Computed example of a mutant assay.
Amino acid sequence: MQKFKFIIRLISLLSVLFGLICFIIAPSTIATHIADNDKVDAVGPAWQIFILPVLQLLVNELLIFKAKRQRVDNDCVELNFLLPNEQQYIVIAIIVLVVFAGAMYQQITL
Rank of each mutant, 00 (worst) to 15 (best):
M1N: 03
Q2W: 03
K3A: 10
F4R: 00
K5S: 04
F6A: 03
I7V: 11
L10E: 02
I11W: 01
I11C: 01
L14Y: 09
V16E: 00
V16A: 06
L17C: 06
L17E: 05
F18E: 00
F18Q: 00
G19A: 07
C22E: 07
I24F: 11
I25F: 14
P27L: 04
P27E: 06
T29G: 03
I30F: 11
I30K: 00
A31I: 00
T32S: 12
H33P: 02
H33N: 12
I34Q: 05
I34R: 10
A35I: 03
A35T: 13
D36V: 15
D36L: 14
D36G: 14
N37G: 13
D38I: 12
K39E: 12
D41N: 15
A42K: 13
P45D: 09
P45K: 11
W47H: 07
W47K: 10
Q48R: 13
I49E: 00
I49W: 05
I51R: 01
I51D: 02
I51E: 04
P53Y: 00
V54H: 07
V54K: 00
V54E: 06
L55E: 06
Q56H: 10
L57Y: 09
L58M: 10
L58A: 13
V59D: 03
V59I: 10
N60C: 08
N60A: 06
F65A: 15
K66F: 14
A67K: 05
K68Q: 15
K68E: 08
R69A: 08
R69C: 10
Q70C: 06
Q70L: 14
V72W: 15
D73T: 13
N74T: 14
N74K: 14
C76R: 14
C76H: 08
C76V: 09
V77N: 11
V77C: 03
N80V: 10
P84V: 08
Q87W: 07
Q88D: 11
Q88L: 13
I90D: 07
I90Y: 11
A93I: 00
I94N: 02
I94K: 07
V98Q: 02
V99Q: 04
V99W: 11
V99F: 12
F100S: 08
A103T: 10
M104F: 08
Q107Y: 12
Q107I: 13
L110K: 15
